[in-house]
Design a protein around this nucleic acid. Structure first.
Lengths: 175, 175
DNA sequence: TTACTCATGTAACAAGTTACATGATTTA
DNA sequence: TAAATCATGTAACTTGTTACATGAGTAA
């Protein structure tokens, strides 16, 4: 049976990302963090309230975050990292089994199905995908300019992923 | 509110992958499919019984799969794709908003935290990550030889992802 | 007969999603 | 004052995970 709460087993991906973002910000409200996730194209989560608020409450409950409620009538809560939170972040950041994993890639997942298609149909679909990937690359480059160094480093990784996809398409569209 | 059962909204990633795998196999038991997921390093799911059996039952309930129970005393069930299942697979395979997405990448997620680290600590961690990624590449190449054309196409994509990571590390380890 | 593999399945739980509710504050 | 935005939160649901249960067939 697995323990609940902030398990010894370690942080989830979302929890780690939240902790890291709180540390970067110094102090931040769930609302702002949520919108950072919402806006960021490099973030894999929807930034849904139903995920962020419970996760931050969980982290606070585990002593990894502290919250200070301001008296602005809205009850805005400012979260910051505790020492314990900082310590918890290390094994998360250095978890090799996760770091080295390929994650979930909807492109890769579909490859077998694409390769099942007959010549003409496959060529058409791959051409369509190629256009979509190129459009995504353009959007990524445009977005990149608006962000700081750290986000750009994330964008750069995704751009390289998309380029790898383009190479893959080129290698498989006529076969 | 979202409808339940096999939603109009489309198949989940796992459902699509299952359907595609069933089509490839022609006819397959959940047990065998489960083990294909379990063994495959390019598959992102654990292939847990608690995911595969319910998903296939769901797909059968929606008429996308049919099952024939053999009388071997074990009640082994052989699933195959229905016409409806084949039709459902198309929009899943051509869902551009998903195809073009970056998916969830635990490496990318950790980038901000790595870049927060001071010089020495960062260099040590990135060196460790580099070794792990290289080991993964070797494992991938060794595994690749044992598989067929379609799986190799998936492996090739992951290899390129890992190479992009190595390039990223090289660019960020001294900075 | 003991142990292993084949094969299906369930129970409890974790953690995300959408959609909604509620209210304060700012801006047009 | 109406509408938009800031801000927190909950409810219902979906779907995955681990861990276990059950039993048939096979090889030592």
């Amino acid at each position: 049976m697995r323990p609940s709460r902030i398990r010894k087993a370690g942080l989830t991906e979302l929890e780690g990302a939240i902790l890291a973002a709180v540390r970067r910000a110094g102090s931040i409200t769930p609302y702002k963090l949520r919108h950072a996730f919402l806006v960021s194209p490099s973030m894999e989560w929807s930034g849904s309230a139903g995920a962020v608020y419970p996760a931050m409450r969980r982290l606070k409950g585990g002593g990894l975050l502290t919250a200070k409620r301001s008296d602005d009538g809205r009850g805005t809560e400012h979260y910051s990292l505790t020492k314990k939170g900082g310590r918890a972040l290390k094994p998360w950041a250095a978890d090799m089994s996760r770091v080295v994993g390929a994650g979930s890639d909807p492109f890769r997942t579909r490859v077998p199905e694409w390769l099942m298609l007959a010549g003409g149909e496959r060529a058409r679909l791959l051409a369509k995908i190629e256009r979509a990937v190129r459009a995504r690359c353009r959007a990524l480059k445009a977005e990149m300019a608006k962000h700081g160094r750290v986000e750009r480093a994330q964008f750069a990784l995704e751009l390289d992923l998309q380029r790898a996809r383009l190479r893959w398409i080129a290698a498989h569209k006529r076969a």
